[in-house]
């Protein structure tokens, strides 16, 4: 088996990720184009605003499929560890900031940022893996 990221599971993941990213960009373009700023929540505008979110759910599904389809148990463990670190980072940051928001007038973080924070947590997970095992899957996100 060559580089871990050249295995069929990773190849499928990258392909899915590429398609979903294109769908996300198209959805953001369509939504920005057709939904005016501060639009009323009419069924049409809500439906259009849902489109990018559906693509984000697609990314999450693709990551879940990667875990299911990875044959290499060590690589799967590294991925799972990254997910756990990312979840911990996200829960920690959002909980702490939420408390600060509750008691002070600091700027509110839109809930939209939870997923990007989680993705940043994956990068921290990569660093943690490198410290713990001297390696990582090399899977860019």
């Amino acid at each position: 088996m060559n580089k871990p990221t050249r295995t069929p599971a990773y190849k499928r993941y990258f392909r899915r990720h590429l398609v979903l990213t294109a769908a996300y960009l198209l959805a953001v373009f369509l939504t920005s184009r057709f939904v005016p700023d501060d639009a009323e929540p009419t069924p049409l505008f809500v439906a259009l605003a849902l489109l990018p979110g559906i693509a984000v759910i697609g990314w999450i599904w693709a990551m879940g499929r990667l875990l299911v389809e990875l044959d290499d148990e060590f690589m799967r463990m590294l991925e799972v560890r990254k997910f756990i670190v990312a979840t911990g980072v996200t829960l920690g940051l959002t909980s702490v900031w939420g408390m600060v928001e509750l008691y002070t007038t600091v700027p509110r973080i839109p809930i939209f940022f939870v997923f990007p924070i989680w993705c940043a947590g994956l990068m921290i997970g990569t660093i943690v893996n490198r410290f713990a095992f001297g390696t990582d899957t090399g899977c860019p996100r």
Partner: peptide, 9 residues
């Protein structure tokens, strides 16, 4: 049928 990293670990 695993990665070299797995064998190393």
């Amino acid at each position: 049928e695993v990665s070299r990293q797995s064998v190393n670990a």
